[in-house]
Design a protein around this nucleic acid. Structure first.
Lengths: 115, 115
DNA sequence: TTAATGTGAAACCAAATGGTTTCGTATTTG
DNA sequence: CAAATACGAAACCATTTGGTTTCACATTAA
């Protein structure tokens, strides 16, 4: 099996703004649930559920330390997102190229009008 | 107002696999709804609704031609996604660096064991 | 040992989501 | 003009989602 045996999709995991925020919060530190939930207006349980979705997508890793569960970012699954995006970069570059060509063609038309 | 006056979020728009597929389909061609929906096992109406979500997020542009409505990719909003991703690239690079350092440290330990 | 703390599971709920079928309306085409 | 085509709006439905409160269970502290 490949790298993406995740129960939850990366795309779906990052669809929620709270979860995106969680990823940033946990990007440079490992934190227990209670501390994490202090950053949000929702209940600790709700935060816990978001963390589960992220964990299912492989975006976050949990580690039990005593009675705490500490979470931290696991950025690898974001590669899938990057790959997906890469396909489209081709098109937005084309778009910019097309725009440039259009502007040039437009100038030509302007020149012709001036004849 | 900035560039993202979209009713629908880009992140949410690409969360659905059918919509991601639509974006690829429309990346190199402008197509009317009926033709598009032939590529999917769901109803034309369902496809139409997905297209609306994509249009709300600015990811697709519609153009009426006679009785047809033709859709094509509008890749610009994907920049937001790219920006968001960029933040995390820092961390996965760190991760790789950390891994490299760990491997080196491990070698050192191996060497020590050999003493 | 008893009390306090950190957490997830469960049951529940309202709203959003992804789908359907039916209908009305423009626009071609015969 | 009449029939066919292309489409979106509406009403409806089942499931998922994001949230809550309550409860049970470990683990640590008194």
């Amino acid at each position: 099996m490949g790298a993406s045996s995740a129960k939850h999709d990366v795309f779906q995991a990052i669809a929620d703004p709270t979860r995106r925020s969680l990823l940033k919060l946990l990007s440079n530190q490992e934190l227990p649930v209670t501390v994490i939930s202090e950053h949000y207006p929702i209940s600790r349980t709700a935060v816990s559920k978001h963390l589960r979705v992220l964990a299912d997508a492989g975006l976050v890793k949990e580690r039990k330390v005593g009675r705490e569960t500490r979470y931290k970012l696991e950025p690898e699954p974001l590669f899938e997102l990057k790959d997906w995006l890469q396909y489209f970069e081709l098109f937005w570059e084309n778009k910019l190229t097309a725009l440039r060509l259009f502007v040039e063609a437009d100038s030509d038309i302007e020149n012709q009008k001036k004849k």
